[in-house]
Design a binder for these strands. Structure first.
Length: 469
RNA sequence: GGCGAGGUAGCAAAGUGGUAAUGCACUGGUCUGCAAAACCGGUAUGCGCGGGUUCAAUUCCCGCCCUCGCCUCCA
């Protein structure tokens, strides 16, 4: 079943099919490694991961490139604040980012290029742009892209009348000291001449020492690894303008290609009714949620539980809800395994009874709809009444979908009772004895004590279990 | 001001021109000394507001209100 995906440029859903007929090539704007990524950032990366998984489950191969922005205003500023070299500083946050990605079960990109490592590529691209009359150097050693030289500028964002909104921005101003040398306020930097507060962070270029402009990094790296034309380019909606608009301009003017043929943008995660962002101080990281007892798979579940083009409200309650939902999935898995006697990793190759969910997922990555379909099948299926063969087909179809969603089932709560402290075990035993002698009052008091300590008792006919609450 | 997205049950969130998936929460039952767990059920006459089109609109059209995002380096 081919995947239909909404394309920001044409504003329509289009079938995803590789330009070269074999490999789906896509580029994702990666993180700026100057601090911990928050779960809003990860909403985008998780959505891209589901996209890739669905493509691959559909039988296509992919070439997934996601960059690391390890040189820009913020990395330079904060590395100096931290008293570290830019390399040490960005390496630290890159390691952290990778750990979070692994925890969230994100498939690693096939190529993860570093911006710093591709400065020569960026310089070559700037040279081409200058040759073609699309860029110009200024006396301070910077190079700017000449927006007026690209007629299609604004097609992606539909912000075509640049002059109109210049007055509306609170930050843009014709007197910005950084930008006074530009021909037009709309022009953007390809290369930034060295400034005193950049410290040692500058590189040689034909226009003097300096550093690359942010937008150019992605153009240069996608060209290097994916070519002049490639299938899909993705990122958060906030990148549509100016970042992606500028990438299009640079790339189309520097090459003969059309750049990305399909644009995949993920809407923001909301918290407290608004955007989660570092500057607003309302962000959650995976680590912070972990301290509150939430697991990465629960976070992943929440992040995919809303359609990628719809704002999603994040709350701690949604994580609790996700925990219960995952338990329900895990119970279904266990019940099926008992009928089939299968264990270990199940790798389904077809959706089986979950074909409806797979179809839903293939329609613009409708994950919440697919989850609804999956639970619908689960509610109708009685594992115990299936033959081993039927259960096997169901289990494989179930795992086909779980893989596409990247959900790794948690262990069941009732199985997670490895270590019961001695004092708790003693209390539990006392309660059991009280119960055996039908001293209900004492038994109930003891049970309440255990509960207060964070443990619950589950009785059955001939014994009991002590479980973590 | 411009561009874009969204307003569906207590919370979250799908979906459809013919009478509302799903998860959580809540709740009835079975079980239990009572619970918990598990299992079997129940829970929106309603989809921001007002018009219109239609045999029929939450779904299409028009107007309005509200929320959120972007408008030069935020996923």
């Amino acid at each position: 079943m081919p995947l239909n995906l909404f394309d920001t440029l044409s504003r329509t859903s289009r079938v995803i099919a590789p330009l070269d007929g074999k490999t789906l090539r896509f580029y994702c704007c990666g993180p700026t490694v100057y601090g911990p990524a928050h779960i809003g950032n990860f909403r985008t990366f998780v959505a891209q991961d589901v996209f890739r998984r669905v493509i691959e489950q559909g039988g296509l191969t992919t070439l997934h490139v996601r960059n690391l922005t390890d040189v820009d205003d913020k990395t330079i500023r904060d590395s100096q604040k931290a008293g570290q070299t830019l390399t040490d500083f960005t390496q630290h946050w890159t390691t952290k980012f990778h750990a979070d990605c692994a925890a969230l079960n994100l498939l690693p990109p096939h190529v993860e290029p570093s911006a710093v490592a591709h400065i020569p590529h960026q310089i070559r691209m700037i040279e081409k742009l200058i040759e073609g009359g699309h860029a110009y150097a200024t006396p301070d050693g910077s190079v700017y892209f000449k927006v007026s030289s690209f007629a299609d500028y604004g097609r992606l964002s539909h912000l075509e009348d640049r002059e109109l909104k210049l007055g509306a921005s609170s930050t843009a101003s014709a007197t910005d000291s950084d930008e006074y040398t530009k021909d037009s306020l709309a022009d953007f930097a390809l290369w930034k001449g060295k400034k005193a507060d950049d410290g040692p962070n500058h590189w040689p270029s034909p226009w003097g020492d300096g550093r690359p402009g942010w937008h150019l990094e992605c153009s240069a790296m996608s060209l290097e690894y994916l070519g002049e034309d490639f299938d899909v380019h993705g990122g958060g909606v906030d990148l549509i303008f100016p970042h992606h608009e500028n990438e299009i301009a640079q790339s189309c003017c520097a090459t003969h290609g059309k750049f990305a043929h399909h644009w995949f943008h993920v809407t923001h995660l909301l918290v407290d009714g608004g955007k989660m962002s570092k500057s607003l101080g309302n962000l959650y990281t995976l680590e912070q949620l972990g301290e509150r007892g939430y697991t990465p798979v629960e976070v992943r579940y929440v992040l995919i539980s809303g359609h990628y083009r719809t704002p999603l409200s994040f709350t701690l309650h949604s994580l609790d809800s996700a925990r219960q939902a995952l338990q329900k999935l895990a119970k279904f898995d266990k019940a099926l395994r008992e009928v089939t006697s299968l264990s270990g990793v199940i790798s389904g190759t077809t959706p089986g009874p979950f074909a409806g969910a797979w179809e839903t997922l293939s329609d613009d990555l409708n994950v919440p709809g697919a989850l609804g379909d999956i639970f619908g099948i689960i509610n109708k299926t009685k594992p115990a009444s299936l033959t081993p063969d039927e259960a096997k087909v169901t289990l494989e179809g179930f795992h086909f979908l779980l893989y596409a969603l990247g959900l790794q089932l948690p262990s069941l709560v009732e199985e997670a009772t490895a270590d019961v402290p001695a004092d708790i075990a003693e209390l539990a035993e006392k309660r059991w004895q009280a119960k055996q002698s039908k001293d209900w009052a004492t038994a109930d008091v003891l049970r309440k004590e255990l509960e207060a300590a964070g443990w619950i008792i589950k009785d059955n006919k001939d014994g009991y279990q002590v479980l973590r609450k």
